[in-house]
């Protein structure tokens, strides 16, 4: 039996194991969380973070990093709570323009050979400024259909769980199983070799950036579906959460090593970590530090597994 437990398998299972351990600890501390309502409250905010994490993971696939995703999600939320409700056609058009802007960023970064962190960090201020133009003070109202989706009472388990599983599987099929997905990940692994085989690197980068823009939109809309109103600063912390989530889920900063299922699990783990620390009665002042602690523990485990594999 032990021969089945290869280091790679162990490493792939690590995100799921982390999540399970955390869930069990929460249930132990607060048995009432083990209910439909409890799970719903716990995992409520996981879905927007999961989408943001998938957006970040798309950038990581091609060895880039998005430091503007949080501000972008905030901008989308502001559009969602204003234009999308009042003038739906214009709202949809604006969201499409957002995706086009992301695709153009990918083209710019590739053609001019710019560092993505600089460009996206700069863009984060652009997104924030645009969001403040759209919605100078917190407010607005989410369209009713989004609200209806996000508060849908699904049987057995809360909607968030079904949605997370569904999204994870769809992205897994696109990036990990499809024929073009292999090329996209190959760009992160060895761009020159992919280019030599006759593929367009520009097309690959634009595809991944556009995909990141789409997931950013899902994240912003899911967020206002839960909060009902928007604020330009609503998602600023998503930038770092999305990076942490993607890494926690088994991704790596360079080399095209990603895992969509892991990313969704990582985002969920990070969301739960906050609740877990609350149940431990740790003051919110310390929670961010404690979340960092959880991150370090999981990553240290991963390195231990890698070392075992190297032997």
């Amino acid at each position: 039996m032990s021969s089945l437990m290869t280091p790679r398998l162990l490493r792939n299972l690590l995100p799921a194991i982390s999540l399970t351990v955390l869930l069990l600890a929460i249930f132990y501390l607060q048995p009432r969380a083990m209910s439909y309502l409890g799970l719903n409250l716990l995992l409520n905010l996981a879905l927007p973070i999961a989408f943001a994490t998938l957006a970040q993971m798309c950038m990581m696939t091609v060895n880039d990093l998005d430091l503007g995703i949080g501000a972008y999600v905030g901008f989308v939320a502001c559009i969602g709570a204003t234009f999308l409700r009042d003038t739906p056609a214009l709202g949809v058009l604006m969201l499409l323009a957002c995706v086009a802007a992301y695709a153009a960023l990918g083209a710019l970064i590739h053609l001019r050979n710019l560092p993505s962190i600089v460009v996206t960090l700069g863009m984060s201020f652009v997104w924030l400024g645009l969001a403040l133009l759209v919605l100078p003070t917190p407010g607005g109202k989410a369209p009713d259909w989004i609200r209806a989706i996000m508060t849908w009472k699904t049987p057995m388990l809360p909607f968030t769980i079904y949605a997370s599983v569904g999204v994870a599987l769809i992205v897994h099929i696109i990036l990990m199983r499809s024929a073009y997905g292999a090329v996209l990940r190959g760009v992160g692994g060895n761009a020159r070799s992919v280019e030599r085989a006759g593929w367009s690197l520009l097309r690959a980068k634009v595809t991944m950036y556009a995909l990141a823009g789409v997931f950013g939109i899902f994240s912003g809309l899911a967020l206002i579906g839960l909060t009902t109103s928007a604020d330009a600063n609503i998602a600023l912390r998503y930038t770092l959460l999305s990076i942490a989530g993607a890494i926690l889920g088994g991704g790596e900063f360079v080399g095209g090593r990603i895992s969509p299922i892991g990313a969704v699990i990582g985002a969920t783990t990070l969301t739960l970590a906050g609740s877990f620390l609350s149940f431990l009665r740790i003051s919110p002042d310390w929670q961010i530090g404690a979340q960092g602690g959880i991150l370090i523990i999981v990553l240290a485990l991963r390195i231990l597994i890698n070392r075992a594999e190297a032997k």
Partner: peptide
């Protein structure tokens, strides 16, 4: 010039654009 993050199969596919669709 292989992609280290991909499997042998996936590296083969990168060389051959015509291998696509179901069952690739």
């Amino acid at each position: 010039s292989l992609c280290p993050n991909l499997t042998v199969i996936e590296n083969t596919r990168i060389m051959h654009p015509e291998i696509r669709g179901a069952g690739w």
